[in-house]
């Protein structure tokens, strides 16, 4: 035993450093090195002048976004949608799917169900938007046809902004919850089965077992999902918000996010601006990650990132 303690501190640390080294070097070369280019967020980047030769404009690139008439609306949409995507899609629904899947004993059934759950993940939004149209088309769409059978008037789905928060969250859940549930499912797989046996002996019912054994096993993964996702809360893909509503301008009030705002306004690649937005997203993400990590550390120390 004492021989272990005698190893000098550095030698004991060395294996960890060696294992971490490949990734450290890689990140240095491919992630840290290009960061100098973020400086174009503060410049009026002109290709011909290059990164260092372009004129310094300070915060002007940030102004375009913040001074815009629609900034509050866009920020609200971006943040709320991302929160919904994290907590509803990736956590709530994904956990329900994972817990349900965990109860399935038949391997064949599990294969079929899991593969089906993944299918939506591979459909591109272009295709999803077309299929959605089949249901929501104001004149011939299935939903309106059914409504008319019941004597109700059809709804102009693509002209009414108020329905779209639900539609978008639903589409996002449909597409990604299955995939997200696999990560949670893998956490469930790591549970020691003797825990369940002990609970059985104590006479615990199904629900109690789920609540006291399965759910706690999910908590670490959930914390990580929260921290990971909050970091990118300001960024959102453009397809879900542009393609799926079929670019209907009536829906802009509830479907406009930072990415679509950029796309609609600046047609060409304005690198300074996108760099500024990226920087802004990074700063907000950093604040959120540190805050959520701090909260989690108070509540459940071993699940915090650091």
């Amino acid at each position: 035993m004492s021989s272990l303690k005698k190893k000098s501190g550095f030698l004991r640390q060395l294996p960890y450093w060696l294992l971490a080294l490949p990734a450290i070097i890689y990140l240095l070369m491919f992630n840290y090195a290009p960061m100098f280019g973020a400086i174009i967020a503060f410049k009026d980047y002109k290709v011909r002048d290059g990164i260092f030769g372009s004129e310094w404009v300070g915060l002007r690139n940030f102004k375009y976004f913040f001074s815009s008439v629609d900034a509050p609306r866009i920020l609200r949409n971006t943040v709320l949608y991302n929160l919904a995507f994290i907590f509803i899609t990736k956590i709530l629904v994904a956990a329900i799917f994972a817990l349900m899947m965990y109860e399935i004993n038949s391997k064949l059934a599990a294969k079929v169900y899991q593969t089906s759950m993944l299918i939506p993940h591979f459909m591109s939004y272009v295709v999803i938007s077309a299929v959605l149209m089949i249901f929501l088309n104001p004149t011939s769409g299935m939903f309106n046809v059914i409504r008319q059978q019941f004597g109700l008037e059809g709804i102009m789905w693509y002209s009414e902004p108020k329905y779209w928060p639900f539609i978008i969250v639903f589409v996002n859940t449909w597409k990604d919850a299955g995939f997200a549930s696999l990560y949670l499912y893998s956490s469930l797989l790591a549970i020691d089965s003797s825990l369940f046996e002990a609970a059985d002996l104590d006479g615990a019912g199904k629900l109690r077992k789920i609540w006291h054994i399965s759910v706690p096993a999910l908590i670490p993964m959930i914390c990580i999902i929260i921290i990971n996702s909050l970091g990118s809360i300001m960024s959102s893909g453009i397809d879900l918000f542009l393609t799926v509503p079929l670019e209907s301008t009536a829906l802009i009030p509830t479907t406009d996010v930072i990415a679509t705002y950029t796309y609609r306004g600046l047609k060409s690649s304005n690198y300074s601006y996108t760099s500024a937005v990226g920087l802004f997203q990074g700063v907000v993400g950093l604040i959120l990650v540190l805050t959520s990590n701090g909260i989690i550390r108070k509540v459940n120390p071993e699940n915090a990132m650091f």
């Binding site: 992630n31 090195a33 290009p34 960061m35 100098f36 280019g37 973020a38 174009i40 990164i51 970091g231 690198y271 996108t274 760099s275 990226g278 920087l279 997203q281 990074g282 993400g285 950093l286 990650v289």
Partner: peptide, 8 residues
Amino acid sequence: LFGGGLIP
């Protein structure tokens, strides 16, 4: 969280 962007 941070990156240099596409060009660099």
